[in-house]
Amino acid sequence: MAQRIDVKDLNIYYDRFKAVEDVSMTIEARSVTAFIGPSGCGKSTVLRTLNRMHEVIPKATVTGTVDLNGRNLYDRDVDPVAVRRTVGMVFQRPNPFPTMSISDNVAAGLKLGGERNKAVLAEAVERSLRGANLWNEVKDRLDKPGAGLSGGQQQRLCIARAIAVEPQVLLMDEPCSALDPISTLAIEDLIEEIKTNYTIVIVTHNMQQAARVSDRTAFFNLAATGKPGRLVEMDDTTKIFSNPGRKETEDYISGRFG
C-alpha cells in the first residue's frame, strides 16, 4: 500500500517569486519523514507540492519531478484530483466540515468520490475512526456535529477523514501546533501506529517531536531573507540529532541559530 517518493530538482514559485530551490530527496515507504527548519524556509511549501495542493494557490507553479512509485505526479496527463486521493493531507488547524456529522466527516472523501453503499461507508467510518484512535470516544455520537469535539479529537477526526479514502501517503503540516500536550501525545502515538501502513511526511517546528516520531529528518533553511529556501541535508533522524553533517544543521538543532 505505502509507496516511496522520489523528488528531483524541485523548484517552487509563487508567481515570479522563487520560494524553494533545487530540492532532491527520497522519502522511504512505511516510514516517518520529518521536515524541520526555521519559519519561511519552505518546508510546508515542499510538503504541499507532494500532493499538488501547492497549485490551489493562484499563480503558484512548480518545475522538476515528484515520482510516486515511478510515476511523475506533474506529468501532463496526471489529474491533481487523483493525486490527492493517493496522497492524503492533514492540516495545521483541525478543519472538520461544519455542516457534517462526525461519521459524515469521515465518510466525506468516499461519498464525494461517488461511494453510495451504506455498508461500505459504515465499515470505512469505523475502520478509520479506530485507525485514528477515536472510535471509543465518539462511537455513541457519530451523528453529532464534528465541530463539537475538542481540538485534539477534531484533529484525529481529520486524520480519520484522510485515511478513510485509503491513501498511500499521508502528509501532515504541523498537525500538533494548535493542540495541547496531551492531545499532541495522542497524535504522536497514532503516527507511530499507522506508519506500518503509510508513508508519512510530517512538517514540525518542534524538534523533540521530530526526534520522537520520525525515522528520517530533512533540514531546510534559507541562505538569507528573500532568498529561496533549500534542502540542507537529509539523513536518519538519530544521525541528524546526534552528529549532523553540516554546521548549520547543528547550529539550528542546538538552538544557536540566527
Binding site: 500532493n51 495542493m53 490551489v56 484530483v81 487523483a82 493525486v83 490527492r84 486521493r85 493517493t86 492524503g88 493531507m89 492540516f91 488547524r93 478543519n95 466540515f97 461544519p98 466525506a108 472523501g109 464525494l112 468520490g113 481529520c158 477523514r161 484522510a162 479514502v165
Partner: peptide, 13 residues
C-alpha cells in the same frame, strides 16, 4: 474558511 476548501481538495474531491 479557505481551510474547508483545502481539506476537501486534499481528500481528492
Amino acid at each position: 474558511p479557505n481551510e474547508l476548501r483545502e481539506a476537501s481538495y486534499a481528500l481528492g474531491v
